[in-house]
Structure formats: C-alpha cells, structure tokens
Simulated scan of single mutants.
Amino acid sequence: MSNTAQDDSFQLYDLRVEVVCPPGKRIMCGAKEGDYFTMQGEMIYLPPNQGISIYSLAAVMPLLPAKQRVTSPNDWMTTDALIACPDPNCPSQLQITREGIRTFSHSETTIVPLHHK
C-alpha cells in the first residue's frame, strides 16, 4: 500500500456567518448588525452572550456544508454568499465568508471504512 492510499485526509473551509443589514433598517429576527457565528468542521461557535434565531439558522444551514468544500471558481456556490432572512418583513441577510482551510481525517470523523477504488 502506498502512502497516498493510506492518506485519509480531506479539507474544509472554516466559515464565518455574519448578519448584515441596510443602515437604519429594523431587524426583525432579534439579531444585531455584525452578529456572527463561526463554523469549524461540524461545530458551530457563537461568541459569548450572543444568539441566533432558529429561523435564520434554518435558512442558512443547508448551504454551509457545500460552502465548506472547495468548489470551481465558476460555481454559484463559490460566488454567492448572501442569504436572505426567512422573514419577508426583515431586511437582514446572512453573509457567508470562507476563512482558513482546515485538514480533517476520515478515520477520525466516521467509523465507516474508507474504500479506495
């Protein structure tokens, strides 16, 4: 078995998801301009004493695993980063920013064996 076959590493971007809102507009979801959370692997981290609306989180959650992965420069997942608040009366958006890239090990993230073809 070669060293390449034994390597079970993969990489994911760390993400920062931040509330943005047009100046002077009222945010309905309880967030404040600049509120954010970060994502490292499967873990979401909020700063102390800061929350996030479950509805806002539900709107952005399906996109996060795809935003963590390396994508083609031509893919909309690479370029599109603003997600509207699900409340039609709230002008806020969540901006997803790719930050540093982190390396993970398949064997440390699942018990399912890795099969190389």
Rank of each mutant, 00 (worst) to 15 (best):
V20P: 11
V20Q: 11
P22D: 02
P23A: 12
P23K: 14
P23G: 06
G24F: 08
G24S: 04
K25S: 11
K25F: 00
K25G: 01
R26Q: 04
R26G: 04
I27Q: 01
I27N: 02
M28L: 04
G30A: 02
G30V: 05
G30F: 01
A31R: 07
A31T: 00
A31P: 01
A31I: 00
K32Q: 06
E33A: 15
E33I: 11
E33N: 12
G34C: 00
G34W: 00
G34T: 04
D35F: 03
Y36N: 08
Y36E: 06
Y36L: 08
Y36D: 07
F37D: 10
T38A: 01
T38Q: 03
T38R: 05
M39G: 11
M39Y: 01
Q40A: 11
Q40H: 12
G41S: 08
G41Y: 03
E42V: 15
E42H: 10
M43I: 15
M43T: 07
I44M: 12
I44K: 08
Y45L: 11
Y45H: 10
L46W: 09
L46I: 03
L46T: 04
P47F: 14
P48Y: 08
N49A: 14
N49K: 15
N49E: 15
Q50S: 14
Q50E: 14
Q50G: 01
Q50C: 13
G51M: 06
G51Y: 02
G51F: 01
I52W: 09
I52K: 07
S53M: 04
S53I: 13
I54H: 14
I54C: 10
I54P: 13
I54T: 15
I54N: 15
Y55Q: 14
S56W: 02
